[in-house]
Design a protein around this nucleic acid. Structure first.
Lengths: 211, 211, 211, 211
DNA sequence: TATGAATGAGCCTTCATTCAT
DNA sequence: CATGAATGAAGGCTCATTCAT
């Protein structure tokens, strides 16, 4: 079979709710272990220890180890992408306002999904290679294009200026994607503060120097 | 065995040279495979295929799989760190000049050691955890402190200004470490150009806005 | 538990009828799957998919996977054996008539129980080894003895002649048992035609050559 | 990877000979176990017990469990098919002579490859389904066509007569394929005797009755 | 009756590494 | 120096079956 699919969820609503709850617990536990040890270096046995389930029991919820990795990426990307689309479609915000809003949402999402984000960054090679990861690659690309679209409209409207918009985008992606590696839950800076300073970094860079 | 030591190199100079040459080939092949597939997901069998050696033959050069990873990190960090120390100790360069020189050296090193760098970033969890990786962690920390020292001296001398130097440093690390993921051998921008624009990004951000 | 017993059928007649009906459906579905994929290679999950039942539900009808295999063999052997006894006991038929009648009944049974027959042939090793299969082995042996009895009485009465009756019996068993592997529902030959030709094959072989 | 291939045999002739020898031992042991217990019901653990190798060691020789099954079929079919082609191509033998010679070769092969033959018959469903078994299916078909060719030429030359040549062929295949199930090493009849009697059975059946 | 969660032993296979040759 | 056979633990996953609900 090509696609590692999850086992079917139960039909009755009460059971289904419990099933989904436990499934989420499993995904969260997996995100933590994958973030700490890496996907390939985490064994199913590690997961049973962390979840309290047995090997067989685990497979009621996950379908396969790879499907678990997929679920982690989906949990990370789907809500973020939805939020990003909303912001980029907003008529009430200027391009600068959109950029700031998107960075705040993004950093806040990273703060609440730190493990997911670490896994997503770390397992780049898995995501890149196999065909069953196309949807994830596409979601990542969509997000990057939304971000680039905001920068482009900012540039076109004269509200922003960049020496090289493409490189600026890559620099922004780099600094944000690196954030979960040093961000601590109750650290010195809140997600919002970090977002605002990244925003300034990008926007000031384009401002005429000493003008 | 805990400490994975490399097998002793031969004594006679001619043999030794050939030995070292082959060893470098093995390390380079490993860097490529680890970058593409991940350290844990690359098997010794993959390495024998890529090098043309047999399993036993490989072990004449590497000591262990983990020692191979260590060699990749050493090949990456040792010359970079040496270069960074030189630049930071230079009397002829201002802090701004040092920053620019270091970024150029750094990006140029990344360009020529793309696989090594990808491995070094990707296998963060391996490097982080085990005691035998202390020297590598120390080298990384030394590099970051050299970089921070330049920023600090720039700030103190009034040549640079940052809202939050610590966050600026992290942003810089993020964008540079992300670079090997999109950098292509004959791409639009040279390593030097990229370095200069990263440099501008950091320095302009600190300039008073619209002043 | 050693002896795999079926769960007790319900007491009330209406329920019992429905129970038996479903049970027959399950046995038929199992015969199909076992014939196509083999007994060991067919999982309970395959059976739930094929029947639309759930795992627990299935076990209301079958007792165990092995009991299912047993039921398939019983469904195959019991009516055939009964019919064979009738024919062999008939006073109205000559040995030749008995042989022809038995072959017709046999081939017709194979036609209507193709899956059962394929399973019965294929799972020879299961049937052969374990003690709980003694009744099935006995039924098979009884059938073969009935068949041999007809040949023997034919020989004794002078109506048939064989160079080696034992080998003729084995050849007959071989060709008939092989039939379900090529027999197609609406094929060129009917079960009756096949039976008659097998019959001729056996009887002519014993006729003196060119006499 | 599509095809479960064997690991590469060593290059040096002496090693290669030993490798091939051990490999044959493994294949023979597997044929025995598969014949006794069925392919699916035989575990790799059973094979290690039977061969004295460890699980890992076994895989030096076999590639996969399925490749082992394939090797058994090849060992069975390749020499038999080669022999059959020789006989069918012979100018010195009449059709009747060819049939007799082929049956003798076939039964003799069955006698010396009893386990292989049992496996080949029993695992029909495995062979039938997957694409990687095409070569085996083709070999089986080739053999049957060679056999049918002899019967056809016999019929055309007037040396043989059949009511229905196709059915005769199927009957012959059935009785021969069934033979390994009852043939015992030092039984009452030799392979040659059995072959001759099967031959008579087929040839006499076509002879005009009582003429 | 029927459900589906849960078990835990067992499946086939791959792994990094060693060592006699 | 180099080979490749061998190890045995661990890998991810499936299995037939049970049982509280």
């Amino acid at each position: 079979m090509w696609m590692a699919s999850s086992p079917p969820a139960p039909e009755r609503p009460a059971l289904r709710a419990r099933y989904e709850g436990r499934r989420q617990e499993v995904v969260a536990a997996a995100a933590k272990l994958f973030a700490e040890n890496g996907y390939a270096a985490t064994s199913i046995a590690d997961l049973t220890t962390a979840t309290g389930l047995t090997a067989g029991g685990l497979y009621h919820y996950i379908g396969s180890k790879e499907a678990l990795l997929l679920a982690i990426c989906d949990d990370l990307l789907d809500p973020l992408l939805a939020h990003a689309r909303e912001i980029a479609a907003s008529d009430e915000l200027s391009p600068k306002g959109q950029l700031r809003a998107l960075l705040r949402a993004w950093l806040s999402h990273i703060e609440s999904h730190r493990d997911h984000m670490l896994v997503f960054s770390q397992e780049r090679q898995v995501i890149e290679r196999e065909p069953q990861w196309r949807a994830v690659r596409r979601a990542r690309k969509d997000f990057e294009q939304i971000l680039d679209g905001i920068l482009r409209r900012g540039e076109e409207s004269g509200a922003m200026a960049f020496e090289d918009r493409g490189l600026t985008l890559l620099a922004l992606l780099g600094m944000v994607n690196y954030t979960p590696q040093w961000l601590r839950p109750r650290g010195r800076l809140s997600a919002e503060q970090i977002a605002d300073r990244y925003c300034d970094l990008i926007l000031r860079a384009g401002a005429p120097l000493g003008a």
